[in-house]
């Protein structure tokens, strides 16, 4: 903000040769600042301030109902000793990695299918969006029933078909529970990936494919050498968002397992909430939340440098 203000003043001085006009309406820079101010203010108040406060809280021993004092890195040191926290890091990375890969693979596949000539294309595209449109809590409750230890429709159907003898312990066994929450997350996340990639696919000029076909390229070669490179920028953006959403997932876990069984599905976000609000240890909860930031930054950096910055995309050589 301060820099922008300085630039604004400099801009007015540049025009000192002419008669300086101090009215806001006459100065493009000042007007620009004015237009940006509300957005900057919103960002400052609703994003920068809470983030800063969270980082500060993580350095204190604040509890619900009592202001804390500065304790330096104590929260982090204690967390490193905490097996539940370490387990939650593993769970979060595992959850994000597996769910993101599945969402990408299935989403891309779905996008490619929807990009073909299909009857009722608009209808199918609308249907695909449904899981994304339904509020997470509602779909989570539906999954809760699907995974119920006693009333699971999946178990029921498999028993009726004679494939299994007893109910599947979806949310009771640690690895089953991890797989179950990942499946629910993938179901919910595919539409976002699929529809975004579909939009990307439609920006690829058909002439490229026609030319390649005339040159005798196989469908796989066309996909590998035309579709994929043209789609990379979109993939980078979509997967960055997808990874961020997955890494910070909360509602699904909270409804399905509350982090159980034996903390096998506790993500960093759910553990942070559990420690901070029901547990009352705001400082520690904030420290867990802050500990998520490096992972998120790493994910963003990876997609930014790894996928997005191809020079040829900006007109340079690859």
């Amino acid at each position: 903000m301060a820099n922008a203000a300085l630039a604004g003043t400099a801009g007015t001085k540049d025009r000192a040769g002419r008669r300086p006009v101090w009215g806001l309406g006459q100065s493009r820079n000042a007007l620009g600042i004015l237009f940006m101010a509300p957005a900057a203010l919103i960002l400052l108040v609703f994003l920068a301030y809470p983030l800063g406060l969270g980082v500060w809280l993580a350095f204190t021993d604040t509890r619900i109902g009592r202001a804390g004092t500065y304790v330096g890195l104590e929260n982090y040191e204690l967390l490193l000793d905490d097996s539940v926290f370490r387990l939650s890091i593993f769970n979060t990375i595992f959850y994000t990695a597996v769910a993101s890969v599945l969402k990408f693979g299935l989403g891309l596949w779905l996008a490619l299918i929807l990009n073909e000539r299909l009857p009722f294309k608009a209808f199918f595209r609308a249907i695909v969006l449904l899981p994304w449109v339904v509020p997470t809590v509602l779909s989570a409750i539906a999954f809760w029933w699907i995974y119920d230890a006693q009333f699971s429709i999946v178990s029921w159907a498999l028993i009726k078909l004679g494939i299994i003898d007893s109910n599947i312990n979806f949310l009771g066994d640690p690895w089953n529970a991890r797989a179950a929450v990942i499946a629910a997350n993938v179901w919910r996340g595919i539409p976002f990936v699929a529809i975004s990639l579909l939009a990307g696919l439609q920006t690829i000029p058909p002439s490229l494919h026609e030319a390649a076909t005339l040159d005798g390229a196989t469908p796989w070669q066309r996909f590998r050498n035309i579709t994929l490179p043209m789609l990379t920028p979109i993939i980078a953006v979509v997967m960055t968002f997808s990874v961020l959403f997955t890494f910070t997932d909360f509602q699904l876990i909270y409804v399905l397992t509350r982090g159980g069984p034996l903390n096998a599905t506790h993500l960093m976000a759910t553990l942070s909430f559990q420690r901070a609000i029901p547990g009352g240890q705001l400082g520690e909860g904030a420290a867990i939340a802050v500990a998520m930031i490096p992972f998120l930054l790493a994910a963003i950096m990876f997609s930014y440098f790894g996928l997005q910055r191809r020079r040829w995309q900006q007109g340079g050589a690859d």
Binding site: Y147, D148, A149, Q150, F151, N167, N169, T257, G260
Partner: peptide, 16 residues
């Protein structure tokens, strides 16, 4: 116990 009680939340026992 009936299998799956380690996944039960507050409502499950009522339902079962």
């Amino acid at each position: 116990f009936i299998p799956g009680t380690e996944s039960w939340l507050d409502v499950n026992n009522n339902r079962a």
